[in-house]
Design a protein around this nucleic acid. Structure first.
Length: 137
DNA sequence: GCCAACGTTGGC
DNA sequence: GCCAACGTTGGC
């Protein structure tokens, strides 16, 4: 089991929209970045991920699960781009903000803190537990 | 709204 | 294969 973080602007695709998709989930399309795509290719069914709202909220607002492994991105004909499907698992009782992550000495190596522009990121097990703890899970 | 960081593109 | 130019993202 591995852990990930999915970043989205709430105005483009929000946690509420993700929740509304239910068990069916939704493909995480539109990624046009090799690093992010490679991360998605590495995902396995059942892997867990954080759902992060960038721009306005800048916080981890929920937990998602990979419900389909990498497949072609239906929003483009370009065969280079693939995506996974994810479904909402549960909301964070208390959203974990970027500021909280930055100020926590245990999270200084977190990709979210160091590479703000990567939209699909790996999260270590230790980081996962810390963020879940901060979020009230 | 600005700007820094970073990825991608294209000319050479 | 290098590097300058450009576009995009996202924090502030």
């Amino acid at each position: 089991m591995r852990y990930w973080l999915f970043k989205s602007e709430a105005s483009t695709w929000s946690w509420d929209q993700q929740v509304a998709r239910g068990e069916e989930g939704e493909q995480w399309d539109g990624v046009r970045n090799y690093q992010a795509r490679n991360n998605m290719r590495a995902m396995k069914l059942g892997d867990q991920g954080f759902f992060y709202h960038s721009q306005d909220e800048k916080a981890v607002v929920g937990i998602v699960e990979v419900c389909a492994e990498a497949h072609p991105d239906s929003t483009t004909d370009d065969p280079r781009w693939e995506c996974v499907d994810i479904k909402a698992v549960r909301p964070m009782p208390n959203p974990v903000t970027l500021a909280m992550c930055k100020s926590d000495a245990r999270l200084t190596d977190m990709v979210l803190v160091n590479n703000t522009r990567l939209s699909v990121q790996p999260v270590t097990e230790a980081e996962w537990k810390i963020v879940c703890d901060l979020g009230g899970l």
